[in-house]
Write a protein that binds this DNA or RNA. Sequence first.
DNA 1: AAAAATATCAACCGCCGGTGA
DNA 2: CTCACCGGCGGTTGATATTTT
Length: 282
Amino acid sequence: MGRSPCCEKAHTNKGAWTKEEDERLIAYIKAHGEGCWRSLPKAAGLLRCGKSCRLRWINYLRPDLKRGNFTEEEDELIIKLHSLLGNKWSLIAGRLPGRTDNEIKNYWNTHIRRKLINRGIDPTSHRPIQESSASQDSKPTQLEPVTSNTINISFTSAPKVETFHESISFPGKSEKISMLTFKEEKDECPVQEKFPDLNLELRISLPDDVDRLQGHGKSTTPRCFKCSLGMINGMECRCGRMRCDVVGGSSKGSDMSNGFDFLGLAKKETTSLLGFRSLEMK
DNA sequence: AAAAATATCAACCGCCGGTGA
DNA sequence: CTCACCGGCGGTTGATATTTT
């Protein structure tokens, strides 16, 4: 069963907006406010799709838009936000009053990318190009096979965040997983210095076994995701019959196939990409 | 001056998550 | 729980403007 189209395409205009259409849209929103984009075109007497109206309003007609060239400060802020957030244009736009996600996205693709490349910086990973290309491709997050039995998870696009290595081994598995884990943001943060009001509210944390991290005990049993979220032994726990926080649990209880294969790490051929950032963002 | 190449950016498309019936 | 609807997002396209040859 397919989804119905957002509007009647046969009777809608497409392409550039005319001045008259703009005026109608502005007048309608001034009178009735934003909302219910689906019914707006009809109510406003526009032969446009609701999405098209929304886009036009958000990106070009809104009175609080800044327009004009980006300042050097805005450039740097965009670069820094991009290094932290990746292509989350709406989040980036949220930190630049008067700028839209579309505008920033276009500006990034046409100006900033080139600017960074000229500086010798890979615009995707925000690392020096040589280093970046040496570590495989330019995806923001990736699994890099380090040795035949070690998998390294790196978060290449967050250079300002201090990381430390952590090795995790799984019973019955020959692989050892070496993770780059986030400690906390370093005290010096140019973005915050320059923009003290900036509240990035970024918390990157995959809850993990505290004992293991602190070196207490010899637990090598991975918790299921739900347990990691503090749902130990609850209905939500999918680890199987064992307490999944039991130190050195039995092969049954610790078998990855029995538990929650978080991020698919149990797979031997782990060459797929990890959407770490998207996990955290959503 | 004209043609070709390149840059810019407004707009579209398809997908996704939230929500309510 | 499922389904449909809606708003929102990110990637991409294509028309137009500008620069280069």
